[in-house]
Design a protein around this nucleic acid. Sequence first.
DNA 1: CGCTCCGTTGAGTCCACTCAATTGGGGTGG
DNA 2: CCACCCCAATTGAGTGGACTCAACGGAGCG
Lengths: 298, 298
Amino acid sequence: MLPKITDRRSASLLVSAPAQALAGASADLDPLALSTGSDEATRRAPGHEGRDPFSRKLSTCVDLTAGDLRELERLAATGRRFPAQTPLLHQSDVPENAILVLDGFACRYKYLTNGRRQITAYLVPGDLFELDLDYRLPLDCALGTLTACRLAVLPRPDYEDLLRRRPRIARALQMMRLTEAAILREWITNLGSRSGPERLAHFLCEMLLRLRTTGLASDNQYSFPITQADLADTLGMSCVHINRVLQKLRRDGLIELSGRRLTILKPEGLKTLAEYDASYLEPAAIPLRPCVSDRPAA
Amino acid sequence: MLPKITDRRSASLLVSAPAQALAGASADLDPLALSTGSDEATRRAPGHEGRDPFSRKLSTCVDLTAGDLRELERLAATGRRFPAQTPLLHQSDVPENAILVLDGFACRYKYLTNGRRQITAYLVPGDLFELDLDYRLPLDCALGTLTACRLAVLPRPDYEDLLRRRPRIARALQMMRLTEAAILREWITNLGSRSGPERLAHFLCEMLLRLRTTGLASDNQYSFPITQADLADTLGMSCVHINRVLQKLRRDGLIELSGRRLTILKPEGLKTLAEYDASYLEPAAIPLRPCVSDRPAA
DNA sequence: CGCTCCGTTGAGTCCACTCAATTGGGGTGG
DNA sequence: CCACCCCAATTGAGTGGACTCAACGGAGCG
C-alpha cells in the first residue's frame, strides 16, 4: 500500500543539507543499473567532443569551446552516487541546487492523495534539472531517482555563474528547454490518445532516441532498469496491465526485455505501432541554424 | 468521421500570407462567444493597470511602466477576428508570427492517424503563442481557434524588437513560460492519474483561475463556449463519456452549464473532487520576489 | 533459511468505448 | 412564417479493455 518512496514528509535532500544525502548513498547500489551505463560508454569515446553525457548532449546543437568542455568536465567530476528510489526534492521545495544526471534515471513526479503517483518527466544521463531561472519558486513536482544514479549537484551561485560565463552553454540549455516542453506535449498526447500498447511503444521509442544522443543506446538496445510499477506510474496504467502490455509487445516480436536490458527487435514495427515521429526531439539533435542573436544587432 | 478542422493539408494561415486568413474571417461569428468576453470586461476596468487581457496578465507579476503599457495597448489594438475552429498553424510549420489571444479560446493540438485529436494546451485571453525564441524550429503542435477569437498577430521582427526594448515584458514572459510548463505537467498528471469526473473538475478549476487573472471570471462563473467534442479531445475521453461526466457533475450540484456559460455552484466541492492545488499557476499570480538579476552584479 | 521485492498469472468487476438513434436549437431558404 | 437542415447534446445498448484483488514463482540479500 505504501508507495515506494516512503518518507514523503522528511526533509528533502539537496535543499539545505546536501551532505546528508551523501551519507548512506554510496553503499547499496544495484550493480546492474550501472554496469551498462555511461561509465562504460564514456570510456569508449576517445575522439568525441566530450566524454560526459552532458557535454555530449550540448554538443549536438552547439559548438562548445575548449573552455566550455573543460568546465563541464570539472562539473561531471563532482558526481556522487545515489541509490534507487531516493527522493531528492519534495513538491513545494524551493530548490537551491541544479542537478545534472550523469548516470541512471531520475524523474519528476507528483503524488495524489488517492495514493497514485504520476511521473511527469524522465531525466536521463545528460539531462539537467534546472533552477527556474533566477526566480525563487516552489516546485510543482517532486524530484527523485528511479534507478541508482550518479548526479552532479550544482549550487545556485555556481549555476548562475556558469550561465553568465558560458554563453554557449546557456544557449544550448535554452534549446533543451524547448525540447523539454515538446516532450511534455508529446506525453499529453500519449496519455490522452493512445492505447496501452501504443503508449508503451511510444515511450520506449522516445527513450531510445534520448539515450542515443549521449551514446547510451547503440544497436537499438539500452539498459532499462525501470520497475514495472514505475512504468505504470509513467504511463497511467496499473502495474498488472503494464505487465500484460509488455508481454504483448514481446509476443509480437517487437521487443525483448530481460536482465534489465531492453532490445528493440523490430524498430520499424515499434515505430509504426506508436506512430512515432521523432521530430519533437530534433531541436536538441540538429545543429543551430542561423538566428537573430548571431547576427550583429540591428 | 471527419474531424472538425477539415482541411488539414491546406496552407497554414499566418505563415506566409496572413492577409489570406483575414479574408473570410470577420463574417460568421458566433455572437454568444464574444458577448460575455473581454470586450465587456475590458470596458469595465477603468482604474486597472491595463485594459487588455495581456497587460493585465503581465501586471500580475511585473510592474509595467507607462511605456510598456502603451506598447501593449497598441499591440492589442491590432486584434483581428477569426471564426471558431480555424486552423492557424500546422504541425511542422515554422511560425513567422507570435500570436496574442485577446478574446476567445485557441489551442495547440495534434492529430494522430487514427483520427483522434489531442489538445495539448489552451490559450485564453492574455496568453501569447510565442515564437520559439530566435530558433527557427518547426512546430511540434498545430495551432487553431476553438471559439471565435480576436487575435493580435505579431511578426517576428516586431516581437523580437519588443523583447529587446521592453525588458520587463520579456521578464514577465519568461515567467509565463514557467507556468506553461507547470500546466503541461499538471495535465500529464490529470490524464494519467485521475478518473473522468476528477479530470473534468480539474480542468474546470484551472480554467476558472486562469480566466480570473484577466478578470474574465468573477463570481465563479465564466463564458465557456467549448464543444463537448473539444472537451473530449482535451481530456482524452470520448464525446459520449464527457457528456455523462458533465451530467454527473451537474447532478451532484457542483456546476451548472447552460447557454455556453459555466457556473461553479460549489467551488469547494469541485476543488475537493479534483484535488486541485492551484500553486502551479502561482508564478504568474504572485509578485516577483527579490531575485538575482535585481541585485547588483557580484 | 527466510525475507522481501519484482514479475507473472487468473478471475471477476466495472468503467469507458463504440455504434446507433433521438432530441433540441439556430440559422437558412422557400 | 414555416419547413428544413445542420450541429451539438443526449440517451440506450452492448462490448471490450483496464482495473482490483488475489495467489504464486523466482531472484537477491541478510
